[in-house]
Amino acid sequence: MAATQGTIQPGAVSLGGGSRRRELGRWLFILPVVFLNLVVIVGPALFGVYIAFTDWSGVGSMNFVGLENFARLLQDQVFWKALRNNLVWTAIFLVVPIVLGLLGAYMLTGIRRGQMFMRVAFFVPYVLPSVVTTHIWRYLMHPRVGLGQWLSDTFGIDFLDKAWLGSRDTALYGIAFMDNWHFWGFPLVLLLAAMSAVDVELYEVARLDGASRFQQFRHVTLPSIRPTLVFLLLMIAIWSALVFDYIFLTTGGGPANASEVMGTHLYTTAFERFQTGYAATIGLVMVLWVALVVGGFVYLRKRGWEI
């Protein structure tokens, strides 16, 4: 400290008070982050709102076309398919990783030996990049070399030996399966932390009342971890509207748009068809979706729901 005492800035010594200059000095600390956010996120986002009402191709002239892009959206079969797939995706992810996470976390609270190892094992897939996760599962789901083929060759179990990603009926579910393998350790770890914080005495009381393990889970564990659970459901509902990587890296939305989501539809529209204006319109729908989810959450909370 001694060495720096000679370089005290003027005005920094006075305690309290609020001269304009001091206030400005404080704002300097927050300025870089705010500035970067304006340039990279908020500014382009506001520009994007405008582009959504134009016929811009990314270069050349930009004509205001009013609601034309939105009218086109209503006619766009691929968009509706994508919207439906995003809903299916949301439904899957609100249920499957949460159930797996609850199951795993509840089972983990009941053991002592190996708890640490298993927690790490469950979380490892979450730190893998999407490009590796999809690679692993593209192999395992491959109709000729994968897990299904192996089960069929070795044990004669052949119902899994299918072209999961190549079929219109299963592509979306196959990709959701992959992403879920990667993701479910995340809710598990959060739920485990919440469960570990539950007062042990509550379980003692429930046991004395003759509650079964399932009843203990239903009436002690679940109510106690509700805030964590609600947080997870909210995050999943937001993330599911934005899903991109897993679909782009596996099927690119195919076959025949069967696994198309808004994110991939936007990407192809912008970067392969160069319809910047229309892509921004699709993006605006994604923004509205997220805003509705967050708004609904805030509304329910204001209405007195304990979430």
Partner: peptide, 28 residues
């Protein structure tokens, strides 16, 4: 630093993180 308007800044960040990357990516 007891910034005046710190709440607004926090709210601003929250909005910023909730914007889908695909949306601002094209204009960006």
């Amino acid at each position: 630093l007891r910034l005046r308007g710190a709440d607004y800044i926090s709210f601003y960040f929250l909005v910023g993180t909730a914007v889908p990357p695909q949306f601002y990516m094209v204009p960006l």
